[in-house]
Amino acid sequence: MEPTSDGGFRGRLEATFWERHANPWSAGTRILVYPVFMYAIYKRDAKLFAATLAFIAVNPVLFPRPERTDNYLSRIVLAEREWLDEGKGTMGLDYPNVLNVLNIPVTFYAFASAFRRKPVGTLLGTLGVMVIKLWWTDAIIRKTGVTGEGPSDSTLSEATSLAE
């Protein structure tokens, strides 16, 4: 997979971002941080809220480049990169992007429930957001055909060499 830029500084930055974000720890913790974020809102815990936002911001580059990307969590990130590089975006009325559009009211419901301290609504909204998001990522994995590879992952190696 080639970086979307010309290989200059921006290309190297993008390649580094995607390579490190393809670490299964990055993708996995990013999925799991959403319930923590909703809990912080529900409990009105400013420190947890700030820590969660900080983690969300640094998560894609927090973990090192993985040696293997032939796992489901890495494939989520690789498929998202390919999907975006192909210019398919994340919102629209076409499948699977319609899932992200449908996720907007579910997200508002989750936030409103957490803000109003409605535990059942917060739980259902949070689960709904996560299920729909994973449905979208699973769909783009299937549509892009991304499989990931082992230690000699040409996808990540090509991106690194092109960006240098």
Rank of each mutant, 00 (worst) to 15 (best):
A40S: 15
A40L: 05
I41P: 09
I41W: 01
Y42C: 00
K43M: 15
K43I: 10
R44W: 00
R44G: 11
R44Y: 05
D45N: 10
K47C: 11
L48H: 05
L48W: 11
F49Q: 03
F49R: 13
A50Q: 11
T52Q: 09
A54I: 01
F55Y: 10
N59G: 05
N59L: 05
P60N: 03
R65G: 12
P66W: 00
E67R: 03
R68D: 06
N71H: 10
S74D: 01
R75W: 13
W83I: 00
L84F: 09
D85K: 15
K88T: 08
K88N: 11
T90E: 14
T90M: 07
G92A: 14
L93P: 10
N97G: 06
N97D: 09
N97F: 13
N97V: 12
L99M: 08
V101A: 11
V101T: 13
L102D: 08
N103A: 01
T107G: 10
F108P: 11
Y109V: 00
S113C: 07
S113M: 05
R116C: 12
K118T: 15
P119W: 12
G121L: 00
G121P: 07
L124P: 00
G125I: 04
G125M: 03
L127N: 01
G128I: 01
V129G: 02
M130V: 14
V131E: 13
V131R: 12
V131W: 14
I132S: 05
I132C: 00
K133M: 13
W135D: 06
W135N: 03
W135E: 01
W136A: 00
I140Q: 00
I141V: 15
R142S: 14
K143Y: 15
K143C: 10
G145T: 00
G145S: 04
T147S: 13
G148K: 02
E149H: 13
E149R: 11
G150H: 14
P151N: 07
P151K: 14
T155K: 04
T155F: 03
L156G: 04
S157I: 15
A159K: 05
A159V: 09
S161P: 13
L162S: 12
